[in-house]
Nucleic acid binder design. Structure first.
Length: 909
RNA sequence: GCCGGUGUGGCGAAAUGGCAGACGCACAGGACUUAAAAUCCUGGGACCAUAAAAAGUCGUGUGGGUUCAAGUCCCACCACCGGCACCA
């Protein structure tokens, strides 16, 4: 190991301890009393007071996606986002905001449960150990979290409110009239609901949380069902195990009611286009029409969904999904066996097989015919598994000429192909043409371009009552129950086959203690083992499913606002202060401070693009509709940090052996160097490989910063004394041996020095606003490289530089800040809350500037002119250049382009 | 297949349409040192040329285009990464 650049090993624990003891990063809620000694209070003249929301400065809520505390501990990917948010949190504090920057634990989850199954040890123990390790690691990085707001989803004081929110959802329905969730009590019953039993059934069919018997994604290996979003290519997202379709009784949340709002409100939030696009694709809105086809020789009708009603004249057959209800009725005697066999074949296919075999179309004829409503033609009805039961109506009209899948199917089974759309480009063939064109062979819509043809034929269908305009979504309801132990139990009991909510007074519903955490031999969830717990005195039984891991993460950002509240999931005053959009009036002295509704900045990985982020938005909207929160969206601005790859450029993984452990990096280079490197690697959003040599680079930079401030001779004395010191405590006391460099003086800076400093202030400030951390750091490197050459180092300039450095490398900045205040008779102020420096544009003005001169677009010389030189003067100076003259020799000047302060281009020929 | 993103030195990267490669890594030479480490200084896209230089030519994935001027804007294509994928 090379020589230590500066005593970070003593400085970092020292300041972490000081921040902890002084609760430096505590965020104050309206109604909290601000201790007299707290630097936040001193900065904002609130010391010893109990400010209201209006008296507090503008809020800034900056949030990290809380981690699952795994046994493996932190890897270098976690702190990337955390460092970015920490830098911004510190910057915003300095800028005068009341900053909320919390951390917590998404601590329910499978690994702790699997360990419990193996060892019999309660998952809570594993979870607590892992949280302790994560806490240690995160704290060692010097992040400015307000730990007094720490939450863990596994804490009963937390999940009682997760259960409470579930009850709000359970006791609500989506009123299509108002487009809002409302209390189930506002539900109007149809006339035929004339008994209590019928009313109950109707009510239960409308709740936002309901029970379904539908086929679900069953993963035998994990012993649980999974949500559609948790199944990737027919395999479980966790572990990659096969997933089967299996009918089971499950809790569902009616997220589909919110499809339109979830889609539309994406336009109101500041997320990356790619992320919004992923959510849009997942919601999958498509406009089209439902059309009824009469079954020939039967009173039955088959309803299909199509996005291309204009191709109705080209429908040459029809396809039902193998699960379609009408198959029983319409299948002819001769085809019954073939259809039955095919249904069995499709049912046994796992999702994986369905996906893998997707290339080859399969299906059988039902023997039945349908009548095409536009031309009365008889077309055969088939079944095939390329039609999904769960989308649209589970049935389609097949237009092989203009749909790729129908075309493949028609080819295989020799079904007729009829052209009904003519491509606009005559060179394009019509077979398999799926884009817009002009209708042909289509009766009354002939000659119409596709959009108009759609409108006209839809109107025609509506007039005759055989079809109507419809919107469909790919989004499915959220499968919300899991057959797990380590999750929130449902606050639900069953009696006589009916479910009922437990009263709020029964919360939290704690999971029972078990000897064995496996599912029961007959396939019941683990909770079913606890018969004492399951069976209640009145004969009812508890629900034995638990909630999925996503439940706790759907609202944790709200709990942070008021983490200790015992009477509600969040207090309304705290909620409206931190989530509301109204700017505080007391911040008028800071014109740049402006707050946004909801979480001001949310940073996390892309892996949550459609799971967590969609679920949390859904819950938030329900809570908004029910009046519990004040904004329709939870996360105003969201940024995804990029992946950090191993040194080999591959994804970090244990099996590749390229995982970098932050603990090792910290030990050798310290937290400040680690933080700085994570940000210096490149833009936050980019994927980038780790390089330990790069850490050394920023570490050397911090060493130069240190040497800019301290006397080298005293540093050497310290190092010699330190090597023989008995323990860390006596080593730390030796730090006082290090003296401030004698060249630092309480004197005025030269114009050149001020320019260097203010260039740096400007660049760092602008880059922080735009989250360009890498270039901000390079600006500070430029400053230090320059300042190292100064013979006299003005105190004020160096102090200001430390403020710029502080968000990035807070420990070394605090230490040097502290030393300057000890060495000079200047009033002591807390670095964390010291007002952010402002740059003075007047100091950046140049009297003379260099301007490049091009001839025919090629650089030929650089000339010096007065900064305010006008076009004519610059042109004259350019033409006077000897080098330029050489290139103009013998040529006529055709044109001269002069951009004042920028460049000159002489066009000659 | 569809959607989104990214392609710049040996490497990580930087550049409101206006001097491509800031800053850092690695590398080379020098200073300090008995020596090394650390530190400090200097150099550096490629090609051509040269004793050394100067000058010159080329250069931001490929091919076109717009412009006095293109890494940046437009069109077509290629490669890689991420997401979705029989969604009618």
């Amino acid at each position: 190991m090379s020589r230590r650049q500066y005593p970070f090993h003593l400085i970092e624990p020292k300041w972490q301890q000081a921040w902890d003891e002084q609760q430096t990063f505590r965020a104050f809620n309206p109604g909290d009393s601000v201790p007299g000694h707290h630097p936040f209070g001193q900065r904002h003249q609130l010391a010893g007071k109990t400010p209201t929301a209006a008296e507090l400065p503008a809020k800034y809520y900056i949030l990290d996606m809380f981690p699952y505390p795994s046994g493996a501990g932190l890897h270098v990917g976690h702190p990337e986002g955390y460092t970015a948010t920490d830098i911004l949190a510190r910057y915003r504090r300095a800028a005068g905001y009341n900053v909320l920057h919390p951390m917590g634990w998404d601590s329910f989850g499978l690994p702790a449960e699997q360990y419990a199954v193996k060892t019999g040890q309660h998952p809570r123990i594993t979870t607590e150990q892992n949280i302790a390790n994560f806490t240690r690691q995160i704290k060692s990085l010097g992040f400015s979290y307000d730990w007094s707001r720490e939450v863990a989803t596994t804490d009963p004081d937390y999940f009682r409110w997760t259960q409470w929110i579930f009850l709000q959802i359970y006791n609500a329905w989506f009123n299509p009239e108002t487009s809002k969730a409302e209390s189930i009590n506002t539900l109007q019953y149809p006339a035929d609901c004339d008994t209590e039993e019928k009313k109950r059934a109707y009510r239960d069919s409308k709740r936002l949380a309901y029970v379904s018997e539908a086929p679900v994604n069953w993963c035998p290996e994990l012993g649980t069902v999974l949500a559609n979003e948790e199944v990737i290519d027919g395999k479980s997202e966790v572990g990659g195990f096969p997933v089967l379709r299996k009918p089971m009784r499950q809790w569902m949340l009616r997220i589909t009611s919110y499809a339109e709002k979830l889609l539309a409100d994406l336009d109101t939030i500041d997320w990356s286009d790619s992320l919004k696009e992923m959510q849009r694709n997942w919601i999958g809105r498509s406009e089209g029409a439902e059309v009824d086809f009469q079954v020939a020789g039967s009173s039955e009708k088959i309803r299909v969904f199509t996005t291309r009603p204009d191709t109705l004249f080209g429908a040459t057959y029809m396809v039902l999904s193998p699960e379609h209800k009408l198959l029983k009725v319409i299948t002819t005697e001769e085809q019954r066996e073939a259809v039955g066999d095919y249904q069995a074949f499709a049912a046994t296919k796992s999702d994986l097989e369905r996906t893998e075999l997707a290339k080859e179309k399969t299906g059988v004829w039902t023997g039945a015919y349908a009548i095409n409503p536009v031309n009365g033609e008889k077309i055969p009805i088939w079944i095939a598994d390329y039609v999904l039961a769960s989308y649209g109506t589970g049935a389609i009209m097949a237009v092989p000429a203009h749909d790729t899948r129908d075309f493949e199917f028609a080819q295989k089974f020799n079904l007729p192909v009829v052209q009904v759309v003519q491509p606009n480009d005559p060179k394009t063939g019509w077979q398999g043409f799926t884009d817009d064109g002009v209708s042909v062979n289509s009766g009354f819509i002939n000659g119409l371009p596709t959009p108009e043809a759609k409108r006209k034929i839809t109107a025609w269908l509506e007039e005759r009552g055989v079809g109507k305009k419809t919107i469909n979504y790919k989004l499915r309801d959220w499968l919300f129950s899991r057959q797990r132990y380590w999750g929130e139990p449902f606050p639900i009991v069953w009696k006589n086959g009916q479910h009922a909510a437990l009263p709020e007074s029964a919360l939290p519903v704690l999971p029972p203690t078990l000897e064995d955490y496996k599912p029961t031999p007959d396939g019941q969830p683990p909770l079913a083992r606890a018969t004492d717990w399951v069976n209640l005195p009145d004969g009812s039984k508890r629900e034995t499913n638990t909630m999925p891991q996503w439940a706790g993460s759907c609202w944790y950002y709200l709990r942070y606002l008021d983490a200790k509240n015992g009477s509600g999931f969040v207090g309304s005053e705290a909620e409206s202060y931190w989530m509301g959009s109204s700017s505080s009036s007391t911040i008028t002295s800071q014109p740049t401070t402006k707050s946004t509704p909801g979480v001001d900045l949310y940073v996390g990985g892309t892996e949550h693009a459609v799971l967590h982020l969609l679920y949390a938005r859904f819950w938030h909207k329900v809570l908004f509709d029910l009046g519990h929160v004040s904004t329709p969206e939870p996360f105003f601005k969201l940024v995804n940090q990029g992946l950090i790859l191993g040194e080999d450029g591959q994804k970090m993984s244990k099996s590749r052996g390229n995982v970098v452990n932050p603990d090792d990096v910290l030990k050798e280079f310290g937290a400040d160097a680690f933080r700085l490197y994570e940000m210096f690697m490149g833009p936050l959003q980019d994927t980038k490989p780790w390089n330990t040599r790069g850490v050394e680079g920023v570490y050397r930079f911090l060493g130069r910063v240190w040497r800019l401030f301290v006397d080298e001779k005293s540093e050497t004395e310290f190092e010699q004394a330190e090597t023989v010191a008995a323990d860390a405590q006596s080593q730390r006391e030796l730090l006082d041996l290090i003296k401030v460099d004698a060249r630092i003086q309480h004197s005025a800076a030269t114009p050149a020095q001020l320019k260097t400093l203010h260039t740096c202030i400007k660049k760092v400030t602008e880059d922080l606003e735009a989250m360009r951390f890498n270039t901000a750091i390079s600006a500070m490197m430029v400053f230090v490289n320059e300042a190292m050459t100064w013979e006299a180092k003005p105190l004020a300039a160096l102090k200001t530089f430390l403020q710029l450095l502080a968000p990035f490398a807070p420990h070394v900045a605090e230490e040097l800040w502290d030393r300057l205040h000890s060495a000079f008779p200047i009033p002591r102020a807390a670095l964390v809350y010291a007002p952010w420096p402002k740059f003075d544009p007047a100091l950046l003005v140049e009297s003379e500037i260099e301007i490049p001169v091009q001839v025919n677009g090629k650089l030929r010389d650089v000339i010096k002119v007065a900064a305010d030189a006008d076009t004519a003067a610059i042109e004259a100076a350019a033409k006077a250049s000897e080098k330029v003259k050489a290139f103009l020799d013998g040529k006529a000047i055709k044109k001269v382009v002069v951009v004042p302060r920028k460049m000159v281009n002489i066009v000659a020929g």
